[in-house]
Computed example of a mutant assay.
Amino acid sequence: MASITYKNATCIYEGSDKLAVDNLNLDIKDGEFVVLVGPSGSGKSTALRMLAGLEDIDEGAIEIGGKDMTGVPSKDRDIAMVFQNYALYPNKTVAENMGFALKLRGVPADERRRKVEEAAKVLDLTEFLDRKPAKLSGGQRQRVAMGRAIVREPQVFCMDEPLSNLDAKLRVQTRTQIAALQRRLGTTTVYVTHDQVEAMTMGDRVAVLKGGKLQQFAAPNELYDRPANAFVAGFIGSPAMNLFTASVVDNGVRVGDSVFELERDQVSILSGTGLTEVTVGIRPEQLEVTESGGVEVVVDLVEDLGSEAFVYTHAGSGSSGVELVARCNPRTAPRLADTVRLRRHPEGAVHLFDPKSGERLN
């Protein structure tokens, strides 16, 4: 096990005029499970490949266990990769796949078998050791790929979207197994995904990237409760946070023909900035349907999920129109085309962002 440090790590692909990873700084603790998340092209996979030695570091450095990895080949970094496509040998059994790296190292057959059987027990693969990959389900193949990494007992696990090829139900099940397994092994893990739900449920800390730049690196609850900017606010959470830019008025902001009221301290912050417009963020569960007060909206869609419902609405029209999503009780949810009012829950948090830079104001 080892700590990992990215020090202004930068990568640019040949022929490109844009940095794939731009001055990335991360300090990952020994035994920590860190998730790199972001949209396509954000640089998350490149950052992982730089750690694994599969991409060159053009500027800066990456350290593993306090040792600079610049120029160190992948095979000498003591890292195990788990890929999206499993990369199993179809002509070898599960046991042979899991123990192949040890065989190449010259590990004796008895010791190989012992390590493979130990990993198989952890991963619930004991009964499949003599099967070929073609006889396994997608989730079982992914666990074999995990087992191949585990038997090596590396300093670091690098996982590049390992659950992308699984169906939704199996993905939930497998991500739970991976998170539990990592905590049991205590191996430092860097996990890449574009799925923010995976990131929030698996990571001790999450690094959000956009365009090669780090936006925020924090625990999942901090990302959710205090996003550093409007991008993180809109990316983290499902359904996404309501984000809209509105004109500042005396006691809040104008939404359609109504005023969305803000707390006194938030009004003071806006007065201090001198802004005439502000980007407001509020999560769906922090809005409630009401008969009076709040903002008048028209219902566009109701998603009934059984235990809860999400009401998609709009206020106003044209360029000044605002779309808002609120969570409510499915038994009392409004109907399509109803006109209702939405107000902030008494304990609901409102986030304010600069409309140009997107940086947090409160």
Rank of each mutant, 00 (worst) to 15 (best):
Y6C: 04
L24S: 08
I28V: 15
D30G: 06
V35R: 01
L36A: 12
V37A: 13
S45L: 12
L48Q: 10
M50G: 08
D56L: 14
E59Y: 13
A61E: 13
M69E: 13
K75C: 00
D76C: 05
D76I: 04
D78P: 06
M81R: 07
V82I: 15
L88H: 02
A95H: 11
E96K: 15
L102N: 09
L104M: 15
E111Q: 14
R113Y: 00
R114N: 02
V116A: 07
V116F: 09
A119I: 09
K121M: 08
L123R: 01
L123I: 09
L129E: 02
L136S: 01
S137H: 10
G139V: 06
G139T: 07
Q140H: 03
Q142L: 01
R143T: 03
G147Q: 10
A149I: 10
E153K: 15
Q155C: 05
L166M: 02
L166D: 00
R171C: 07
T174M: 15
R175G: 08
L185S: 01
T188Y: 10
V190Q: 08
Y191H: 14
E198M: 08
A199H: 06
M200A: 10
V206L: 07
K210E: 13
G211K: 08
G211N: 14
K213F: 00
K213Q: 15
Q215S: 08
N221D: 11
N221E: 13
A228L: 10
N229H: 06
A240D: 09
N242S: 11
R254S: 12
G256C: 07
G256W: 09
D257R: 10
S258L: 00
D265L: 06
S271P: 00
T276Q: 14
V278F: 03
T279L: 05
V280K: 05
G281T: 11
V297L: 02
V298P: 00
V298S: 13
L305K: 12
A309Q: 07
A309W: 09
V311G: 05
Y312W: 15
S317Y: 10
S320M: 12
G321F: 05
N329F: 09
P330E: 08
P330W: 11
P334C: 08
G348K: 12
G348E: 13
G348Q: 11
D354S: 06
D354V: 10
P355Y: 12
